[in-house]
Each structure stands twice: as structure tokens, then as C-alpha cells.
Design a protein around this nucleic acid. Structure first.
Lengths: 120, 120
DNA sequence: GCCGTGTATTGCGCGATATAATACAAAAGT
DNA sequence: ACTTTTGTATTATATCGCGCAATACACGGC
């Protein structure tokens, strides 16, 4: 899986990595049990520090998305815990996005279409 | 309009203010041309620094949501520019939210319902 | 042993955030 | 004219998150 970092973004690098892996799992690009690149390999590939990748992996581990194993590296968890609800922070974010789109004249159907697209 | 600040949030205070005003405009709670509280009044009410509120107002002004006038204070713009498209950053955020929800076992209909709710 | 994992540590620099304390320019009220 | 109130600018300070650098450690295969 290819990780792309946007240096202009205000989202921290370790968060961008975390987010892209989460989206990869959701889309199926990253299968359950699949090997993730090693922290050093990914850091080298992207051109960033090792600890930054490690920070992303630790976050993913804490959130239950992946498992880290000495010495097999990191793998996508086969059993990911399902909370079954959307956290308040994400609801607030969604509301902000919807509000901004509405004000700027975007059709509601367009947002629904995006949700549909990202759901696959 | 009542502004509530979550000190535990990682979202900066000035950004929380900005977001809530944008959502207020979208929902209609803040009508076009409506007076906003003065920076000092809002700062006093929330219990924060004056410049923090000013920073939120400056951002809203730059984005075209409000107008600031010496000495009438700040008002919601009557003509807000409609870009007509969703910025990439918001699309990425939306995709992240959808992905996380999907993994955690949330139904797609639930997200659609939230979009519907926030759209009003 | 050796090597490759993730991880911990220490230190550093940088920028964003938020505060405090003043001060200023402009417009309205008296 | 003077005062008041508005947003805004300035200067300084403290804190925190982020990212990097350089090392080192614990563990488990080979």
C-alpha cells in the first residue's frame, strides 16, 4: 500500500499515516492479517523519521486496528473491535463539513454520493 | 447564540468558535445580517482572551462568512460567496469518518441520517 | 552469535496556541 | 469636544505538539 504525505496539510504526518491505513482497511485494500511495512522501511520510503512512523503504529495499535509483534512487524488485526457507534468528535466534524458544504451551495445529493463512494 | 468550548478537545478554541458560528449560519440560527457578540463580550462570556475571539472573527472574515465594521461590530454577511464545491481537505476528512464508522460496524443509513439531520 | 523487529530515551528546534497588558484608529453617542 | 465602544495591532511570555536526530534496548528468529 502506498502512503502519500501532504506536507502542506495541517494534519500531522503520523496522523496522515494512521488515517490512510484506516481507510485502507475499510476499503479492503488492506486485508485482515496483512503485513504492514516495517517502521524503518516506511520511514525510508516516505523520507521521514522512524519514530514518526512508530507513533502512527502505536496509535493504530492502541485503537485496536493493528497488532505489532516482535519480530514479525505489524499486521492488520483479524478481529477488529466494533464499537457500533460514531464518536461525538466525528459527529461534530461531520456536521461542520455538511454545514460548510451547504453554505457554499453544494447539493445534499453530492454529499450522499461521496458517502456512498467512500463506503465501498 | 451560545458558544460552548470543549477544553478537552484538540481543536483550538478559536477554531471551535469559528466552527460553531459556521454551523449556526448553516442551520439558520444565525440569520444573514445578524449581529454577532463583540469580541470582548464573547471573550468575557466564555472566559477566554480577547485576541482569541478576534482570531476567530478574522478567520471568518477572511473566509467571507462575516463582515467586521468599526464600530458596529461583526455581522453575518448577507451575500456569502458560494464556491459550489467541497474542498479536498473536507473530502479526505469525510472519507476518514466514513471509513472509521464502517469498520466499527455502523450502518451506512446511520451516516446518511446524520447528514440529513445536519443539513436542516 | 547476528540481524531485524518495535520501542524507549534524550535532546533539540520550530511553530501554533493562548494568555496578559497596552495601545491605536475609527465611528457613534453624549 | 469628549467619551465610549468597536475591531485590531503590538509585544512579550509560557506551554504544548510535532518532527527529527542519535542511540540504545528487548525480543525473537536465523
Amino acid at each position: 500500500m502506498i502512503i502519500r504525505i501532504d506536507e502542506l496539510s495541517d494534519v500531522p504526518i503520523y496522523m496522515q499515516i494512521r488515517n490512510q491505513i484506516v481507510m485502507g482497511i475499510s476499503s479492503g485494500e488492506l486485508a485482515a492479517g496483512e503485513q504492514l511495512p516495517t517502521v524503518r522501511a516506511l520511514a525510508m520510503e516516505i523520507g521521514i523519521n522512524t519514530m514518526t512512523v512508530s507513533k502512527a503504529y502505536q496509535l493504530l495499535k492502541t485503537e485496536g486496528y493493528i497488532m505489532t509483534d516482535r519480530k514479525n512487524g505489524a499486521r492488520v488485526r483479524t478481529q477488529i473491535q466494533k464499537k457500533g457507534s460514531i464518536p461525538e468528535s466525528n459527529k461534530t466534524e461531520l456536521r461542520r463539513i455538511v454545514s460548510e458544504a451547504r453554505i457554499s451551495g453544494v447539493e445534499k445529493a453530492e454529499i450522499i454520493a461521496l458517502v456512498d463512494e467512500y463506503w465501498r
